[in-house]
Design a protein around this nucleic acid. Sequence first.
DNA 1: GACATTTGTTGTCTGTGCCAACATAAAGCC
DNA 2: GGCTTTATGTTGGCACAGACAACAAATGTC
Lengths: 400, 400
Amino acid sequence: MVKVESQSFAGSIGRGANRDDLRQSNLSNLLKLVYQNRTISRSDLTSMTGLNRSTISDLVGELVGLKLVSESETAQAGRVGRPSSNVSIAENIFAITVVPRYHSTIVSAVSMSGELKARARIATPIHPSPEEVCDATEVALSQIRKQLKKTDRIIGVSVAISGQVDVRNNSVRICSFLKWTEVPFGALLSERLGLPVQIDNDGSIACLAESTFGAGRGFSDIIYLFGGTGGIGGGVVIEDKLIRGYRGYAGELGHIRLTDSKAVDSLGLSGTLEALVNREQLAEALGLDDPEDDELASAILEASSPRARRIIDKKIDVLAIGLANLVNIFNPQVILLAGFLQPLFQANDYSLLSKMRHSAVAGSREHVQVRTAALGSRILEIGGAQLVFQDLLNNPAASK
Amino acid sequence: MVKVESQSFAGSIGRGANRDDLRQSNLSNLLKLVYQNRTISRSDLTSMTGLNRSTISDLVGELVGLKLVSESETAQAGRVGRPSSNVSIAENIFAITVVPRYHSTIVSAVSMSGELKARARIATPIHPSPEEVCDATEVALSQIRKQLKKTDRIIGVSVAISGQVDVRNNSVRICSFLKWTEVPFGALLSERLGLPVQIDNDGSIACLAESTFGAGRGFSDIIYLFGGTGGIGGGVVIEDKLIRGYRGYAGELGHIRLTDSKAVDSLGLSGTLEALVNREQLAEALGLDDPEDDELASAILEASSPRARRIIDKKIDVLAIGLANLVNIFNPQVILLAGFLQPLFQANDYSLLSKMRHSAVAGSREHVQVRTAALGSRILEIGGAQLVFQDLLNNPAASK
DNA sequence: GACATTTGTTGTCTGTGCCAACATAAAGCC
DNA sequence: GGCTTTATGTTGGCACAGACAACAAATGTC
């Protein structure tokens, strides 16, 4: 599981730890295991944590008391010995995810058990003001609340921004798509809804989702690259942790300069990955006008005209160099490609891989795998929910 | 302080923590604080850890019992109240650092208190075999042992390799300067000396030193770039932790491709930072033949011929783009430049900074600082020693 | 049905850090 | 100098988290 905040007990130098922290740390670890597996047996918890049976019993009891997990009946049998009881994550704890898009804002309710229980799409102007997004979210939330049960609890809200987000101040630094600059949207929306709000870059959110529940599961060092209409975004996971940098702007992988080309990207930077590999150019080369994602994907895979093939090959070459740079910097286990980068990879994986390896240093290029992302269109909801649950997972006892 | 290994208690999901781990974690934190400050008062330890006075008393007592620290007299006065006693790191615990160079291998003994107590330089061939470096180290070590006292303890050895090191297997993947490929040098030297041996990339070692005791002190997100005869190496610290990647090859910052240039670097990769910004070209442009570091530095700073200035400016431009890429990827607090990159920066810092900012994304470019490195020619000894002490610092009680 | 195997529960124990009270050592004040 | 004030070290008792052992419960095996 990928951790957003390093709360790991006594992690940073200086702070000592007491018995209370010990308890919290163990509770947190246990809850994370249950969250990640949705349902898990107590005996598995025992063996995975290495803690004593009686301790697990005690800890699970506390989590049950906090109504964060529930114990269900044995279920699985067939093995010798007394069957172990199952522990399941609560199904009535919800995160609200907000995704502003063209023409509309999409708000969803995702349970801790991973279910998307309710969804509302509210029309907004093409370049909505912060207030207009707040309005839309408020309306959507009231609609969603009606669909939830009385016992359901909403614990927080996340917003996926396709731009730069200052995660320390919970504010949008710059978002060209929304035409926002320096908007303290976290505080704004939080005051309006009366709920804690976390905003984050969409690439980081998607990376979080993909690394925990998607194709990155089980890997500790991951690079995630997403190609969309807004450009190329992504995220980096190192030792199971999403890197954020000093302010949270880390991971602007699309704006890495690779060549001397004068072509510019969405931020006006020239010769970058995003400037040379983008959706519009591909759509144009394939004769498509504002295609859907899957439409573009099949067009890329089935392209036959020499011009289109040439352009696709060129983009693969540039992507290969971009990936090689990232391989040299991070020595990752796996690179995940999403959005239109996915069909680009599939169109000629051999070429991409061999050219990437050719530009990468010996050690790092040997083990690295390139894969397509596994999560579909709901990825921002999955990642956004995780962002919200993270606090709870890190500090279960505070949820009273 | 920068941690090499994440042992941070309950850090990775799954493993639970018991009271023993709690104690070890607190002991470790305390020892790290003493190590980092060389000498520190008990009251400072209390306030920095947040632990109780009596707990600190107990823990320090245990560290004294382990002979890892010693309590000295009050020393500092002037403030009201009973003066706090000082705790100092042991001065008789040593790390051996091995640095293979042209014509010789340099072996040093560095104490935990940061003192370089003994040093031996043994002549070796230009491209020594692993066995020849082992031989040299063995001879040097016996010389060094004579200079140490009976009570001095050597706890481990580190080797700084100017090449790719698989830190998992403790082996050299490839080192062009030594002409080694796939050499399990850690095991080799360890068997010969009967001491634990850790090998690592010189850039990582230098980064470790600079971030803990040098110009990176106090920063949590650091990029370190070193320019030497072998090319450009470096390291990256994120949230106080040196990134290693899957195998330990991370941080090959010199081999990032920036342009379409056909110039190749030491690994044969074209258009990379190292291919375009290197020592040989600078020396040649300045009319120097195999200059010393300081000689080259002053020549860069005092260059007057138009051709030399033009070449220097060109290199600054390329460096600016390289730094901008790193800024976009990592959103660091500070970038540290060492080796010949240092005078290059000083030659025209305004140009470097403005061009770097021009190619970087808005958020990240605002806070980032560029500084020159603070540690001098002993940096590999300082960092290498830290590598050796890391294990002890992470697990003080095991040192019995 | 007897037995082995695995898991959950309960009571006891150990050890770790906290706390309060006291002792100690300095500075400030008269 | 003697008093108070302030800050620190020390000591004994305490609370509580997790380990451990013994027992109970639930399943499979013969």
